[in-house]
Design a binder for these strands. Structure first.
Lengths: 233, 233
DNA sequence: GGTCGTTGTTTCGACATCGATATAACCGAA
DNA sequence: TTCGGTTATATCGATGTCGAAACAACGACC
């Protein structure tokens, strides 16, 4: 079974949500210069485009400067509000994209202490501090590869002097070199190796290869988990 | 205008996508012990529930062990496949949730070098390495607060010995203390201060307060951006 | 083996969504 | 004044979604 996590991003305001299709519409308007040709270029009906623009403006404010009549019959241009909205959407979409495509390490453990949503989880490799909204008992922590920092064992700051206080010494058990980005698997005593995404640059500077000793560290606030099993929902 | 980035998470397989409603359905089946009462408890029709389960099983494999006849008329239980799927969904949803709710710092800069999707961006505070899929010229980088590590200036490893090679010295210009988590704003010479999410614990250990000197660092692979303006799309 | 209660399955119709189409209003330019 | 291309609005029909209800299957119990 080939499963793939994915998402639909949108920006909500006032009950109306601006999604990818709306973004495509606004982009097309910007590109084509009119609602009519924009809808046409997207293979969608003009009626829908017009309806939707009105609907969006109701929630987000003026988005499209419309002009009818005149030379060429008129046309439409985007307001700066619309452009800011597009940029904001693109940014959040890029962030979500990162989460969806980047490998994660799943760590199974048990909550032994809770302080608000900050918990201490007991794992085979030691205690890990993480964010778990609620629940109790067994948890699955999701550690994203881009949140894991690798450092040279000889020059790793003491935990008291950094905000990344989840620290584990381990050995590299796998290197998957990409064009510019490498995926490093580090065994730290957990069931699965911890995956870390680093630039090829960093890999060379740290001299990482199979068998290398390295320290992996990650922040508690970047480690999110969900209670599984005997949760109190 | 109050805008809020949000998302719909789902897990795709074979063209079919398992979304939040499907998860609610499976949860209800697990809780109620039958499709019938599950649908009822969700206020949805039984027909839909049954159809949907078949559809999902077509793509994901056996999810619901159905039993009809017998004492009590029968019932349904989830397979381990279904439970794993639920856990996987919850994990990715939690990750997305983090992206959606956590503050980000928007950094505007200009691409001065590109090597695959790895770029060097020129900013008022200096060069930043980041991931930008494509485009050119002006970019907006999105730096998530939970990806920023703070370290004591006196005990910060040299860049060659860590994979977090975006480093900037700065001063704390704002501390927003929560119950267990603090949001630290650090001025590093950019238009906006960089936001970092750290545990209260870390804040105390590092002695962070307004005016404190601190080093912020973050990985290139955790810094995603989008080209804006003269992009070649 | 028949009965009975519960569940799984299928069919049908109501409802919302969306596209296609038609029409009116608009305004600069020829 | 006419023309041309656009935006704004209303209506109709196709399509897909969903719920209600009828239908079929199952197995313990009598």
């Amino acid at each position: 079974m080939e499963t793939h996590p994915s998402f639909d991003a949108y920006i909500g305001s006032d009950g109306v949500t601006l999604d990818a299709r709306d973004v495509a519409l606004l982009r097309a308007i910007d590109r084509e210069g009119s609602l009519n040709t924009a809808a046409q270029s997207l293979g969608r009906s003009y009626a829908h485009a017009q309806r939707r623009v009105v609907e969006l403006e109701d929630a987000f404010g003026a988005l499209v400067e419309r002009q009818r009549g005149g030379a060429g019959g008129g046309g439409s241009t985007l307001t700066t509000t619309a452009r800011e909205l597009l940029a904001a959407f693109e940014r959040t979409r890029a962030s979500f994209e990162g989460v969806a495509e980047i490998a994660e390490t799943v760590i199974v453990g048990t909550i032994v202490e809770r302080d608000g949503e900050l918990v201490t989880v007991e794992t085979p490799a030691g205690a890990i501090r993480a964010l778990v909204p609620d629940g109790d008992g067994e948890v699955q922590l999701s550690l994203r590869a881009d949140a894991v920092t690798l450092t040279d064992p000889e020059d790793t700051p003491v935990p008291e002097h950094t905000s990344a206080r989840n620290r584990f010494a381990g050995t590299v058990v796998g290197v998957e070199s990409g064009e510019r980005i490498a995926r490093i698997a580090v065994d730290v005593g957990l069931e699965q190796p911890v995956l870390a995404l680093v630039t090829e640059d960093s890999r060379e500077k740290l001299g990482l290869d199979d068998g290398s000793e390295v320290v992996v560290s990650f922040k508690a606030t970047a480690t999110r988990g969900v209670a599984v099993g005997d949760a109190d929902d």
